[in-house]
Design a protein around this nucleic acid. Structure first.
Lengths: 215, 215
DNA sequence: GTCTATACGTCGATAGAC
DNA sequence: GTCTATCGACGTATAGAC
């Protein structure tokens, strides 16, 4: 219970008694911002709680005050970095699944370390004993697949996409292709990432709307 | 593991003075076999050099005698586990790219922890400062893509695959789809992994050879 | 609520004895 | 070839200052 010497106590008291407040939120945000820089410079593997704390000028225990575990910090750093790319804003309603993932890939590449962090989180999520990463990966995959499957149905209804494909299978396939191609591209920029995604888009396009030059 | 007791001593002396020989190789193999079991049971994330060493009944320093780093051990464990699935044996020459990856996925699922280990190695390989994992992932991706691209060309020559697709793009796409679908499936077995791969195969099949029931 | 100090147990790596 | 011993660094947990 805050002592709050002279301030207007009514609304502040309720707000202040629980949950994070201005200073704490700002601090938390500062931690995330600095963490993004550190991850971009050194990668997520070599970045300890202590090194992030040192960059900010606090003790590593302070970070534990804002994030219950290193893994949760990683997840939140990823979300914040993704948010800063504009990825959280909704994509155009009539965009095709492949267009969505192509645009996402383009945004991801603009943030150093983001693809690596994503890969790290997914890999950790596959292991038991990493509940934060598992939940992150599970929820994210499910949400992206659901969005893409809806877009497939919409594109099919518009006659822009083949009718003889299962929307759920297409959604899983497009997510997998996008993620996998980004990983391959990180290791070898010669990998035809864009060409492969465009190829997939062409294969999924309705045959009657395909431009003859492409066939 | 014959140490060839009565063998000619000349080359033995040279061989024994450096590099591994019978006893050391057997020990190394034993370590890998036990490590595979431990990884299957506990996952790669929670498996330290100490825990593997404990299972074998040696100190963790002994493992460092055979593997220069934990990362190298991880890579070799993956290779050994993959070898034991029969994955190292060549696939039929006329198999299609998607058939190859479908069969590989089937074999991978038979070994607990293998998909997780693979994801961990690829994620580590994307980070700088992990040379062993980086080399593993780079070489493996390049080799698989080269094999698949050859198969695409062969299937195109046989008239079993669309002529209007770039073999290199198809190879990268199929690898990405296979890897990504396995990861998604590990988190949610409802993901239509097989259906998505079969869908991709159908999209890539030559239109004239497609069975009418599928169109 | 925010943060420091401190400590615990574990980790990968390495040096040197046997 | 394997051990013990030790190192520095890690994530986490707790006590308590402010």
């Amino acid at each position: 219970m805050p002592e709050e010497p002279g301030g207007p106590a009514e609304e502040d008291a309720a707000a202040r008694s629980r949950g994070p407040y201005a200073k704490g939120l700002a601090r938390r945000q500062q931690i995330l911002d600095r963490a993004i820089e550190v991850f971009a410079r050194r990668g997520s593997a070599g970045t300890s709680l202590r090194s992030i704390a040192q960059e900010i000028g606090v003790s590593h225990a302070a970070l534990s005050h804002y994030f219950t575990s290193r893994e949760q910090l990683l997840v939140e750093v990823y979300r914040e970095a993704e948010r800063q790319t504009g990825e959280s804003e909704p994509h155009p309603a009539d965009a095709s699944p492949v267009e969505i993932m192509t645009e996402s890939a383009r945004r991801n590449h603009a943030v150093p370390g983001l693809v690596q962090l994503y890969s790290t989180l997914v890999a950790a999520g596959l292991e038991s004993g990493h509940p934060d990463a598992t939940e992150f990966a599970t929820v994210r995959f499910a949400a992206v697949r659901a969005d893409l499957a809806d877009r497939v149905r919409r594109n099919q209804a518009l006659g822009r996409m083949r009718q003889d494909v299962d929307p759920d299978a297409v959604a899983a396939l497009v997510v997998a292709a996008s993620d996998g191609l980004q990983a391959q591209w990180m290791l070898d920029e010669e990998v035809p990432q864009s060409a492969a995604l465009e190829l997939l888009a062409r294969l999924l396009a309705d045959e009657h709307t395909k431009r003859p030059t492409e066939a």
